[in-house]
C-alpha cells in the first residue's frame, strides 16, 4: 500500500492546530462547568436540576425552540424558494432583510418584539381584545425564537436550491408528474439534508438564546421562564454550583439533540453521499 499524498502539506500541523483551538475555545470552558458541578454531591445535583421551576424552564426552552425551528423550517424554505425561483422588484432588499436577525443585537430584537406585541403595541392591540396574549407568555418566547432562527434555514437551503437542475423537474413533468408530485418526490428529497441542517442550526441557536427572549417572555416562574435565565438568576444569587449544574444538564440535552439531528441528517443524505464519485 502506498502512502496517500495530498496536494497541500501539513495535515498533522493543521490537525494539531484545530484540536488546540477547539480545546481552548470550546472544551476547556465546558469542562470547567463540569468540574465546578462536581462540588455538588449527586443528590444535591439531582435536587437542583429537577426542581419544579427548573423543570418547567427546560420544557419551555426546548419546546419553544423546537416549535420555533419547525416554523422556520417551513417558512424559511418558502422564503428561500421565493428568493431563488422568482424575480421581482425589491428582491435584493428582501434578501438582505433575511440577515437582519443575525446582525441585530438580540436585546434590540427583544425590545422591538415586545413593543409590537404588548397590549398597546401595533399587533398586540388587535390580538389582546380577542383573547390572544403574546407578550409575557410562552407564545412570545416562540415568536422571539422564530425571529432569531430564520436566517439559518434560509441561508442553508438557498444555495442548494440554486444548484438544483431545472432539468430534473422537467424530466419529472415529461414523465407525467404533476407539480405537487414533482415537489415532494424530486425537489424535497434533494433539499432535505440542507433543510435539516438549517433546522438544527436554528434549533441550537434558539436553545442558547437569551437577549431577545427575556424582554418578551415576562419571565414568570413556571410559565415563561427560560433555562438560560434560571442560570443567570442563580449566578446573580452567587449560587455558582447551582448555575453550572443546570448548565451541565442543558449541555447534555443539547448535545444529545444535536447528535440525533445529525444522525437523521446522515441517514437522509447517505444515499446521495455514498454515491458521489
Amino acid at each position: 500500500m502506498s502512502k496517500k499524498t495530498n496536494v497541500l502539506p501539513g495535515f498533522s500541523l493543521s490537525l494539531g492546530y484545530t484540536l488546540l483551538y477547539l480545546s481552548l475555545i470550546v472544551l476547556i470552558p465546558l469542562s470547567a462547568a463540569l468540574i465546578k458541578t462536581t462540588e455538588l454531591s449527586f443528590s444535591e445535583f439531582w435536587h437542583v436540576v429537577t426542581a419544579p421551576r427548573v423543570m418547567a424552564s427546560y420544557k419551555l426552552t426546548f419546546g419553544a425552540s423546537f416549535i420555533g425551528a419547525s416554523i422556520n423550517a417551513v417558512f424559511g424554505l418558502l422564503t428561500a424558494w421565493v428568493l431563488v425561483r422568482y424575480d421581482f422588484f425589491g428582491k435584493k432588499f428582501i434578501d438582505a432583510l433575511v440577515d437582519l436577525p443575525f446582525a441585530l443585537p438580540t436585546a434590540v430584537a427583544g425590545i422591538a418584539l415586545t413593543a409590537v406585541y404588548a397590549k398597546n403595541g401595533w399587533i398586540g392591540s388587535f390580538l389582546e381584545p380577542n383573547g390572544i396574549h403574546v407578550a409575557f407568555t410562552p407564545v412570545g418566547v416562540v415568536i422571539a425564537l422564530t425571529f432569531i432562527g430564520l436566517p439559518f434555514v434560509v441561508r442553508t437551503v438557498q444555495p442548494v436550491l440554486e444548484d438544483l437542475e431545472s432539468e430534473t423537474e422537467e424530466a419529472a413533468a415529461s414523465l407525467g408528474a404533476n407539480r405537487w408530485q414533482t415537489f415532494y418526490k424530486i425537489i424535497f428529497p434533494a433539499l432535505l439534508p440542507a433543510l435539516m441542517t438549517g433546522f438544527a442550526l436554528a434549533f441550537a441557536r434558539a436553545i442558547g438564546e437569551y437577549g431577545s427572549v427575556i424582554f418578551i417572555a415576562g419571565n414568570m416562574p413556571m410559565v415563561s421562564e427560560i433555562t438560560p435565565l434560571i442560570i443567570i438568576t442563580k449566578l446573580e444569587q452567587y449560587d455558582y454550583t447551582g448555575a453550572t449544574a443546570v448548565a451541565v444538564v442543558m449541555l447534555l440535552i443539547s448535545f444529545l439533540l444535536l447528535l440525533a439531528i445529525n444522525g437523521l441528517q446522515w441517514w437522509s443524505s447517505r444515499r446521495n453521499a455514498e454515491a458521489i464519485e
Binding site: 437542475e165 422537467e170 424530466a171 419529472a172 414523465l175 407525467g176 408528474a177 418526490k185 454515491a275
Partner: peptide
C-alpha cells in the same frame, strides 16, 4: 424526453428512476 445531461433523479435507485413515470 431524454436530456443531454441525463437529468436522472439522483436520490432514487435506477429501478425507481425507471418506475417513476408509472408510479406518478
Amino acid at each position: 424526453f431524454v436530456f443531454q445531461h441525463y437529468a436522472l433523479f439522483r436520490h432514487m435507485t435506477v429501478f425507481e428512476n425507471v418506475a417513476f413515470g408509472l408510479r406518478v
